[in-house]
Design a protein around this nucleic acid. Sequence first.
DNA 1: CTTCGAGCATAAGCCATCCTTGGAGTGATC
DNA 2: GATCACTCCAAGGATGGCTTATGCTCGAAG
Lengths: 305, 305
Amino acid sequence: MAYARRVIEARHLRVLRAVATTGSFSAAGRELGCTQPAVSQQMKALETSVGTPLLVRAGREMRLTQAGEALVRHASGILAGLTAAEEEVAAIAGLRAGRVRLVSFPSGSSTLVPAALAALRAAHPGTRVSLEEAEPPRSVELLREGDCDLALAFRYEGAATAEDWDDLVVRPLLTDRLVALVPERHPLARAESVAIGELAGEPWIAGCPRCRGQLVQVCEGAGFTPRIDFATDDYPAVVGLVGAGLGVAVLPQLAVESVRPRGVRAVRLEPAVRRKIVALTLPDLAPVPTVAATLEQLARAARRP
Amino acid sequence: MAYARRVIEARHLRVLRAVATTGSFSAAGRELGCTQPAVSQQMKALETSVGTPLLVRAGREMRLTQAGEALVRHASGILAGLTAAEEEVAAIAGLRAGRVRLVSFPSGSSTLVPAALAALRAAHPGTRVSLEEAEPPRSVELLREGDCDLALAFRYEGAATAEDWDDLVVRPLLTDRLVALVPERHPLARAESVAIGELAGEPWIAGCPRCRGQLVQVCEGAGFTPRIDFATDDYPAVVGLVGAGLGVAVLPQLAVESVRPRGVRAVRLEPAVRRKIVALTLPDLAPVPTVAATLEQLARAARRP
DNA sequence: CTTCGAGCATAAGCCATCCTTGGAGTGATC
DNA sequence: GATCACTCCAAGGATGGCTTATGCTCGAAG
């Protein structure tokens, strides 16, 4: 008796509906692309599973019992819901819909991200992106906690504290380098390049906490400790302070690009200090179409700076 | 590629919902009464069939992607519709709902049918019966055409025109017999029984067309042709006409029972002329619970007249 | 009245699917 | 560091579904 405890499947309803509309098993089989015995067995199985006849074979024609009518009546709604669900998922899978939650650090979100999102929007108008700003340690945390789908992060070459990204999908985007910012009238303003040590005696203006740590580390590698007079994670402010002659700064090239260099000069730092900018995502998220598409546009945006 | 063209089944949604609510494959398996690999495979199949990941395995916990969320959102409605359908069909199958369409000839619908339907209503309050009146040839026709589920019919013993009921389910209910109706002051009114020939010279009042044919046949069997002065299929009218002394009649016992015998006497006809009263239904309809239950109540009502 | 065609039921066989078991790897917890 | 819980993977076995083939009934046409 426990064997009859089977449950109605969508397939049963599809077959039943076909039988109800066509009026015969054979026609239903043709409509469904299977043979008549398949339909016959399917209906028999459904009838035993619901425990009551659903169809009356009256001579030539096939009629529904009351239970059959009830089932057909429900079937339309159920199958409609099912196709609606398939539609919606297909829309997301086909990039006609769906939202990807992106987290980026500030200098990324002002350069790479806008270009990438513009391209994404052009290619797949249905997709939506939500953007949040966070510096790397936090952004990776957000990713791992499931609060975002895609994180832009960076890592300085030779950095002491190497975050563990082994369990993530890492897509290198581009390699940024630090530039020194000096006031226009500074002696080094016209230099081709500058060694960090040449700025040892200057007052410094530091960027975000992480950049600041990086700055100190680089300076100490060159044998001095920078005298930091100001610290702000607002890049235009840094540029403004340098332009006002209050000190020098080093910033990532990417950060400088989005700020008008009013009264300052950006001089290449030699030897170069580089940071690798990457996009991170969870392995399970990488094949998600919206994520993959966004990632692809970020990579393309990075190729032509 | 054509292989990925599979379609979402209710089973997939059940599993997905269980995973979404429990948060793990193992727990979902326990809830569904199967093993964890079964859940895992089921989800993998669903993901390939919709073409996009639905779940993110993030460390310990299991989260839904956007497509997964969409599917779960639809799933609740779809599965609710499915259980509603099962409920309704089960209600019909379990005699808590459902309507049976009954056709009966007049003398049946005034005696057998009310008793049977009262018992049915008492036993299964949810069931409903629609009753229509039709004489046997027509009622069987209605049955065959699918316009009713159950037909009460009768057949006179030794009748010339034997309808073909071989393809129907025939349930004998009772055997009725004809009685002669004579005015109270008629010489035969006190007789124990009467032979049809004894009424050869009387004016006759005939019933329905079919009863009339039967009457003529019986009389001719006894060697005379009845002089029919009145014909009506209204039994009380027949009784009234006999009571008024306008003639005699023969009626089925069952028909007389539901009419007050005002001024008439019912005398047993000997030799007896009997008719078998049966319930008819289509073979496919017989196992339908509402039909079976109605049939059963009719049989029980027939056993105690 | 017989023949023919259409449709359904059933049986047997094949194939896909599904589920289970057993084992390995991994992250979190004590 | 050991344990527990969870997942994935692989292989085996059972179940179910579909197909072909066959027989039957019914209705229409010759």
